[in-house]
């Protein structure tokens, strides 16, 4: 194998790793995130709705912007520059997210006036007892406690989250914490397609490979996080690790053109 060939192979592996790990990280954030949001917004179905919706939104935006930036810059370094803030953000999620989510929960809680509830009791409980067969009564108290409910004082209002915000507050919380890092990570795939493309004839194969690698990374992220990581590590640890991994990806972008420069032939191709 010639030196140029080895170089090309190394570059391919590096680009593949970037795509795979980018996809992996997005799903680690989604799954750990769902768990992280639960104490704030409850174990509701809307947590998952929010996480899935927000991550898809981040992917759409990241793909669109990442592709355009790749066309403009055509180098890995700027992508690395974008991943550094993503890493810092993810690393600091355990530090800032709690306070922000608390604010969101409190923001949409409203006082609900107490409506006077009519006493809908249509059959007194003691009548139920009267229907009992005699033998079943043995060991059971035949008579209810005789006190009748006394009048209740007028009640203070309840604090509740209205139905609309029960749906939207988790989405907002999810967006505040996860939209930005997932957006930045989503830029990797289209960016890498641009970096790896030399001839238009290979774009089909190449983009297919990149999509597949990124998605396989995501699949791994989902299952490994849910089945293994959450059983052994705290959310804090996982956010920190994901942050450091993002720095690693940024480092890989910076090193890419130094360690595995494109061959001159490729360069002339891409310069058109």
């Amino acid at each position: 194998m010639s030196g140029a060939e080895l170089n090309t192979r190394g570059r391919q592996w590096a680009l593949g790793a970037l795509v795979f790990l980018g996809g992996f990280e997005v799903m680690v954030l989604e799954i750990v995130g769902a768990r992280f949001l639960q104490p704030f917004f409850g174990g509701s179905f809307y947590i998952w709705t929010s996480q899935i919706g927000v991550v898809m939104l981040a992917l759409a935006l990241g793909y669109a912007v990442g592709g355009r930036l790749a066309d403009r810059w055509q180098q890995a370094r700027p992508l690395g520059m974008m991943l550094v803030p993503a890493g810092i953000f993810i690393l600091l999620i355990p530090n800032f997210a709690g306070g922000m989510l608390d604010m969101i929960v409190d923001r949409y809680a409203v006082a609900v006036p107490v409506e006077a509830l009519a006493d809908t009791e249509n059959e007194p409980a003691s009548e139920l007892i009267a229907e009992l067969p005699a033998d079943f009564l043995q060991g059971a108290e035949p008579e209810a406690a005789s006190e009748t409910p006394t009048e209740t004082a007028p009640e203070e209002a309840w604090t509740e989250v209205p139905p609309f915000w029960q749906k939207m507050a988790p989405a907002l919380g999810s967006a505040v914490v996860f939209l930005l890092p997932c957006f930045l990570l989503a830029m990797i795939s289209p960016y890498i397609i641009r970096l790896a493309t030399h001839q238009v004839e290979e774009v089909g194969t190449l983009s297919g490979t990149v999509y597949a690698a990124s998605t396989v990374g995501s699949i791994a992220g989902v299952f490994i996080t849910a089945y293994v990581l959450l059983d052994h590590y705290s959310s804090t640890t996982l956010f920190r690790a994901t942050g450091w991994l993002t720095f690693g990806l940024a480092g890989l972008c910076f090193a890419l053109d130094i360690l595995w420069p494109e061959s001159s032939q490729n360069k002339s191709d891409s310069a058109e």
Binding site: F41, L117, D119, T120
Partner: peptide, 23 residues
């Protein structure tokens, strides 16, 4: 039965406690 002495709230339990500041 919902009565003057029994009210059903539709909420997540933890959020209910978090928002309860009076009772």
């Amino acid at each position: 039965k919902e009565t003057a002495k029994h009210k059903i709230h539709f909420s997540d339990g933890r959020q209910f406690l978090r928002l309860n500041k009076t009772r």
